[in-house]
Structures are given as C-alpha cells and as structure tokens.
Design a protein around this nucleic acid. Structure first.
Lengths: 155, 155
DNA sequence: TTTCTAACATAGCCCTGGCTATTCTTCCAT
DNA sequence: ATGGAAGAATAGCCAGGGCTATGTTAGAAA
C-alpha cells in the first residue's frame, strides 16, 4: 500500500482526528438531551414569576405543543427532582429546579444580549438565542459576557 | 377579580407574547430535526474530499455511534435525495447533497472562525460550533461573517 | 347544591435515533 | 481458487418526545 492509499496523515487534512471529532458530536447529543429540561424549567420559572402560577395549558401554548406532551414531560421533571406536582394542582420548582432555572435564564439573557450587541435585530436574536443557548460552553459564555460589557461601556 | 389576579398586561412582564414565544420554540424544534442531516452530509463531503470515500465505519467512528445507526440514517438521506447508495458499495452525494454540504460547511466554518475571533480557544470553538451552527439564522450568520472580516482587517 | 366547563390525567399510537446480535458480501491473502 | 476478515445490511429492541381521544377533577356560576 502506497502512502496515497490512506487519508493524508496530519497536515493537509481538513478533518480533525476521529476521537476529537467524536467528542464534539457526543457533547452535542448530550446537550440536545438536556435542552428540553432547561427550556421547561426556565419557562416555568418565568410563568410563576409573571403570573403566580405555571399551568400546563400555558406551558403548552408557549411551547407550541399539546397539553399531554407537557404532562408527560412534567412527570419526567418531577422524577428528576426539578419540580413538585400535586394532582390537578399547580407546579412548583424545587430548589435545584430554581437553581437550574436561574442558570438557564442568565445564560439565555447573555446570549440574547450578545446577539443584539453585534447588531442582530431583537426578533432574530430572540429566536436564535433560544436555539444557541444550550450549546454555549462556560468559556464561550464568559466571552459573550465580556463582549456585552465592553460594548455597553463604549456606547 | 382585582387587576392583580391576572398576569401583568404588557409592560412589566418578562415574557414575550405567547405566539412569538411559540414561534421560537417551533423553529428550534424544526432545526433540531434538520441538524442530523446536515451533520451527516457535511461529514460525508469531508470524508470523500479527504480520503476519496465515505465508509459507514468511518462515519460511525467520527459521529460516535454504532454502524447500524449510520446505515439507518443513510437510508433516510438516500430517501431524501441527498446521497446515492449502492449495496455494499460506497456513498455518493447527489447535487443537492453537495449543495447542502457546501452550505453547512461554510456556515460551520464561519461560526468557528467567529468564536475564535472573539477569543475562544480552538478546542472549545470546535465543540461549541458543532452545536451552535444549526441554530444560526442567515441574519446572524451575516453578522458573524462581518465581524470576522473586520477583526482580520484590524490585526 | 348542583351543574358545567376548563384544566389535568391517562391510554395508546407514531416516528426518530440510538443500541446489539446476526447475516450477508467483498475482497485480499494465502 | 478459496477462506477469512472487514465492512454493510437486516432484524428487533428501547427510550424520548410528539400526537389524538377520552376519562376525571375542581371550582365557578347558576
């Protein structure tokens, strides 16, 4: 087998090495699994703060899904210890639920502010932030925060 | 019922109106469905360019999934017209497959460059870009591109 | 108090994207 | 020419996150 039979070894390849590549995808898949939880918890916190309660119908309406979908998800959230439920009654965030909500909310806010700071319209920023926030590592979040602060300082 | 029983009407609420909110989530859910396709097509293009062929085992290795998972996904890609398959033979991108790959690759590259430009380490940029790229709207992508260009111009 | 409605709970379905285990094919090396 | 190994296909399982249809409950209105 001549050297040309195999992919270029290192230099000129546009592909990173397989295990690194794999790590990125694994991480991304993991994030995908946690995003829904974060979305729910964040939304529940907002609804409670805003209207005193978080009803399934409201959650369903804002998420754009059917009520039973929400019900099923809430069971999972309860099982995972993020919320407390009483049959036919409201939903309450547990301490770790509140903690996660606060974290998500802050991250969400930073991402959205950042997008605005680089000149994105508020409508687009809102939509993109919803998708992006879950894939932002602590390091990137820090950078976003710095950038927003600087931009405000200059204006 | 006093005015306080209902959520604040407009001004002081931290929640956007429900239908806007819903749109964001719907969009995000839609993106999630297309990300996998983009990841595959982009990876296939890279593998072909890099080594002349895209084998299931290599795709599986880089994606961090099992080979049958890849096989199943490839059927979907073929059904959707992105690739052509010949049993026990290689995979080829169709024209629209190539087009999608090119688009994804460019977007991916812009996002990664952008993250680097704001000071993220290359390792983190790689991982975050993998997750973020699928949630970047055309408007945001434009802004990223502008930013990268400017940054390079100043250096 | 009774009734009726809005909200919640449950059942049962579908599709997607993972997995393991197993059965072909190909193709290289003997 | 053939046997074996590596890669691809297939079968069959699971969990997650959607859905519709339907039963239950709480609480307001009559």
């Amino acid at each position: 087998m001549s050297p040309d039979d195999k992919p270029h070894s290192d230099s000129e390849s546009l592909l990173v090495d397989p295990s690194t590549h794999m790590e990125s995808f694994r991480r991304t898949r993991h994030n995908r699994r946690t995003e829904l939880v974060e979305d729910y918890v964040e939304l529940i916190a907002d609804l409670i703060e805003d209207g005193g309660e978080a009803r399934q119908v409201d959650i369903a309406l804002r998420l754009g899904v059917a009520q039973p979908t929400v019900a099923k998800m809430l069971k999972r959230l309860a099982a995972d210890g993020y919320i407390q439920q009483r049959r036919y009654r409201g939903i309450f965030l547990t301490d770790i639920g509140k903690q996660l909500a606060e974290q998500s909310r802050e991250r969400h806010h930073i991402v959205e502010s950042f997008l605005c700071a680089i000149g994105i319209s508020i409508e687009t920023a809102r939509i993109d932030a919803e998708g992006i926030e879950h894939h932002v590592s602590p390091e990137t979040l820090e950078a976003f925060k710095r950038f927003v602060t600087q931009t405000i300082a200059f204006s």
